[in-house]
Amino acid sequence: MFKYLLGRIGAMLLTLFLVMTLSFWVIRLMPMSIFENPEVSPEIQAQLEAEMHLDKPMIVQYFYFIEGIVTRGDFGTSVKVRPGLDVFDILAIRIPPTVVLNVFSLLISLPLGIIVGVAAALQRNKATDNVLSFLIVICISVPSFVFASLLQYCLTYVWPIFPTLYDSQATTFGAQLYSMVLPIIALALNPIATIGRYLRGELIETLNSDYMLLARTKGLSRTQATIFHAFRNSLVPIANTIIPMITGIMGGSLVVEKMFAVPGMGGLLIDSILAGDHFLTVALLIFYSAISLVTILIVDISYGLIDPRIRVGGGK
């Protein structure tokens, strides 16, 4: 297990290094000066460029860049979106809302998806199942940002139940969360449907197995047998859907955050790309990769907890 973990972390660091290298070269190879401000005199511009090592050859810049990140955690300075601020400091403020949004979406989608899946499987081919399956198809197909628009229009404008935008003045975590309810729902619908669909399929297959017959014979009701026996065996296939789901949620959150003005990484990424603030963009991409890689690692390790029969990293 320990050896496996070490290997996985090694692979993760390698991937991060690749992301760093790739983003550095992609962004620096663009025929575009980092400073494109006509108001700044050429001398000051030259001085600034010298300070950020921009006057040296590309390859030297690359080593400065890597050295800065590895030794000092220095990702450079924002030049356009928040001129003069250290990129790392900007990120320290911007990352928490994104993480809260993503984690909550994932957390509510697990139990809800399980309820949907179990309900659909128990009521197989009855009205409940048909309605749920129909909703599942819709929730899987329709993109999260379309749901976000719909929710925003219906629940904040037509029936003003929730605030339209993220409440950055909120003092308590609860109030903050309240203004994030709609983005969380918009992001969670797709994962709920995905889990529901898988679980339904798995359960229906399991319901015909011998041990389910045994469970029924020993006196358990159909619901009891499904929840205590069939459900546990369906957890592993569901765990496999969680990793692509995380990627989906994180991608969707980039857009949904912007729509609800959540001051997270999404809006910042969009701003920095549009403004051409390259240091910021690179740092955001690196952090974005790091967050998704760490989440995937956690899910991977938790397989062993879900099903003790799976020995993570076990040999032959």
């Binding site: 992301v19 790739l22 962004i27 663009m30 990627t247 994180m250 974005y288 990769s289 998704s292 890689l293």
Partner: peptide, 16 residues
């Protein structure tokens, strides 16, 4: 290795 890179990051980089 290529698959390990987050899809969205790679896509954004190429678009840039």
């Amino acid at each position: 290795v290529l698959d390990g890179l987050p899809y969205i990051v790679v896509t954004i980089l190429f678009m840039i």
